[in-house]
Every structure is written in C-alpha cells, then in structure tokens.
C-alpha cells in the first residue's frame, strides 16, 4: 500500500475513534448495531481502538431476520467470544409471532422491511439513547446528506428538515426523552477505504465476502443465493457459480456478484475497477428513486 492510503486511513480512523468516544461521553445508554457485515465489523475494531484496555461502554445489538447467511452467525458468535463484550439479539421472528408485523408472501417476499419494527422495539425495550451504525455517505444519495449524529423521534423517523448543523468537530447529542440518535462514525469512508482498512488491520471477515462456489438463481437480473426462504419454484433455475457478496444482509435481498476474487487484494482490485456501486447490489433500493429516503424517514437505518 502506498503512503497516501496510509495517512488518509489514519485520519479516517482517528475521526471514527473520536466519534465513538463522543458517544461514550454524551449518552447514557448507547448501543452498537452489529449486522455482521464488513462495515459493522470495522466499527468493532475501531471500538477496540477507542476503549481498550477498558470494556466497550455499550453492548452490540444484532437484529436477526432469521434469514441469515449461516456464515454470518458463526462469525458473530466467534467474534463475541473473542472480544468478550455483551450481545443483544432482536428477532424478527418474535415480532412476527407477536403479530406486530405480518410476513410478506409471494416470490419477492423479504423480511428486510420488517426489521425496522424489531429494531425500534429493541431500542425502546432497552431504552437505548444512541445507536451506532456503519452507514456511509458514499452509499446512496439520501445518505450523502446524513449527519454524523442523526436525531430520530420516538417513531425512529428521520426528518431531513430538522437536521442539526454540524460545525467543526462538535456533535450535539442532546435529546428529549423518547428520542434517540443514530451515530455514523464511518460516514466519511468510501467502500474502498473500508476494504483498505480491513486489509491494513488484517481484520477477519465472514467467508461469504470472498469468492466461493455456490448455488444461485437469477432474480430480476441479479444473482441470489439459493435458499429455502427465497420461495423458489420451477421457474427458478439453480446454477453453480463462483460468487462473492459485497454486502451482507438478509439472504432474500442481498445479491451476489460473479467473481474469482478469493483474496482481499483481488477484491480491492475488483472494486477499483468495478462498474456497479455496492448498493446497486441490494434489491431493496431499486424500488424507486426515493426508496432510501423514504425508508430512512420510516426509521430504517
């Protein structure tokens, strides 16, 4: 890696650590939302740098749709035992069983939209006043305007008109009862920065990020891992392909890309030259141009 990347990464890292420590200093009951994806894995490493040899001043929270890649859960459990921090899991299945949400039906059914309810319930039950997440501004247009400290009302809603100005390095985390703040320490990182950081720090990732042979089907022009939750039928044609995943989410809405990049260096090269942005591989954004903005307003991360 050349000098340029190193110094720039140092600065991004220092900023993220600064933001994590602001969360610790400003909030009573923060939490770190852990999805099992590379961005939240990066956050865990940054939290180690921010708070060791002390403990994290927050638990990790995972919203489990029940439709996970098994590799993610294995990774999560190994990581928790390695770092010795507390994990709280909110289950979408519980929300379904309690009748709070209704499972979608049909071919494109996904639990992705349902997890917002489980997330908000988990926040309310635990009285979290700040939730740290791994979103980045380069992911999507609506995110480009997101603050580092983003205030949500008690319905989890984001109001772009009520966003607080963020001057210099000062973050105002004061809230009223019932409100909470979403905090994004790696807002200023790009996908490539995250990968370069993972390489530099030698951070272990779930295996699905690396190219592997897998049974896939093609849906709406995208490659999806063949899994029972996809409601497959005779029209779905299962093929064996060499693929990897650029994001890790619910199996029903995380598309694979064909790839032979089984080493981190190869992945970085692929991303540098790739023609599709990371979110382009997530079906849930495709619905409409304003999809992300609408979901953010509704309390999705």
């Amino acid at each position: 890696m050349n000098k340029q990347d190193t110094t720039y990464l140092d600065q991004l890292e220092a900023e993220a650590i600064y933001i994590l420590r602001e969360v610790a200093g400003q909030f009573e009951k923060p939490a770190l939302l852990f999805s099992g994806g590379k961005d939240s894995i990066t956050l865990v490493r940054l939290a180690e740098k921010a708070f060791r040899p002390g403990k994290f001043p927050f638990p990790l929270v995972h919203i489990d749709t029940g439709h996970n890649f098994p590799e993610t859960i294995t990774y999560r459990d190994n990581m928790i035992s390695r770092i010795g921090e507390k994990l709280i899991v909110g289950y979408v299945q519980d929300s379904i069983d309690q009748g709070k949400v209704i499972e979608q039906t049909g071919k494109n059914a996904s639990r992705n939209a349902l997890q917002t309810v489980t997330l908000l319930d988990t926040i309310a039950e635990n009285k979290f006043d700040a939730c740290i997440g791994g979103a980045r501004r380069d992911e999507e247009k609506a995110r480009a305007k997101e603050r580092i400290f983003s205030v949500r009302d008690e319905f989890g809603q984001w109001d772009p008109k009520r966003q607080r100005p963020e001057l210099w390095n000062i973050y105002n985390g004061r809230i009223h009862k019932g409100e909470n703040v979403r905090v994004f320490p790696i807002s200023n990182w790009t996908e490539l920065d995250v990968w370069n950081y993972i390489r530099r720090e030698k951070i272990e990732l779930p295996s699905i990020y690396f190219a592997h042979e897998r049974e896939v089907i093609t849906r709406n022009g995208q490659l999806m891992a063949a899994a029972e939750f996809l409601n497959m039928d005779h029209e779905d044609h299962i093929e064996l392909k060499n693929v990897r995943f650029r994001t890790v989410g619910d199996m029903t809405c995380t598309a694979a890309v064909e790839s032979h990049a089984d080493q981190i260096d190869d992945i970085i090269e692929e991303i540098k030259f790739s023609k599709i942005s990371e979110r382009g591989a997530r079906m849930d954004d495709k619905v409409s141009e304003a999809a992300m903005e609408d979901r953010k307003k509704g309390g999705y991360f």
Binding site: R137, D138, K141, A142, A144, K145, P160, K161, Q163, S187, N188, T190, E289, A290, E293
Partner: peptide
C-alpha cells in the same frame, strides 16, 4: 448527482449540505 433529497429534486434546488467523495 448532488441534489439528493426528494424535496430538492421537486424544487430543483439544493437545500442542505450534501457530502460527496
């Protein structure tokens, strides 16, 4: 590319700070 929010697209003006990389 930079006029991200719906309200902005409707009005065709930039009403907030958008960060680009």
């Amino acid at each position: 590319l930079t006029d991200g929010l719906k309200a902005e697209r409707e009005q065709g003006i930039t009403i907030d700070v958008a960060y680009k990389y």
